[in-house]
């Protein structure tokens, strides 16, 4: 066909959008008010896309289980883990973390695991939300 993309373009015009929908259809004039409305239940939003089963998100750390063997520090590719000498526990800086979950694999007592929390944007890289200890 001379222009074989043309029928495809016409088909596309009547198809639903392929992309995932934004939570709101139109930009709200005030985001904070909009969030309040969602919490009150007066407005419904498009539900978020489900997270896959083995997603690697923010690290969970079970402090009581940790034996302070330092193996995770040895394999961390981005040197995101710091060892606290007095306590013999670790401190993970998520601003440096590459979410490879290698520390989860090597941990002999399985005190580390990956959660599905991916909303980690912050203006301060040392904020409380970005440090796991």
């Amino acid at each position: 066909m001379r222009f074989s993309m043309l029928p495809q373009v016409f088909v596309q015009m009547f198809k639903k959008p392929f992309t995932n929908k934004f939570p709101a259809k139109y930009t709200p004039s005030s985001t904070t008010k909009f969030v309040e409305k969602i919490q009150n239940g007066t407005v419904t939003i498009h539900p978020p896309v489900p997270i896959p089963e083995h997603f690697r998100g923010k690290i969970r750390y079970d402090k009581d289980k940790c034996i302070g063997c330092k193996l995770c520090i040895k394999v961390c590719p981005s040197e995101a883990i710091e060892f606290k000498e007095e306590e013999k526990k670790i401190k993970i800086f998520l601003a440096r973390c590459t979410f490879c979950s290698q520390c989860n694999d090597i941990c002999p007592v399985s005190c580390l695991s990956m959660s599905d929390d991916f909303l980690l944007a912050d203006t301060d890289k040392y904020s409380k939300n970005l440090i796991v200890e």
């Binding site: 896959p52 089963e53 083995h54 997603f55 690697r56 590459t98 979410f99 490879c100 979950s101 290698q102």
Partner: peptide, 12 residues
Amino acid sequence: TEYLVGNRVTKA
């Protein structure tokens, strides 16, 4: 890819 390895690009 995300379903098999957990992430879209950096597969680890």
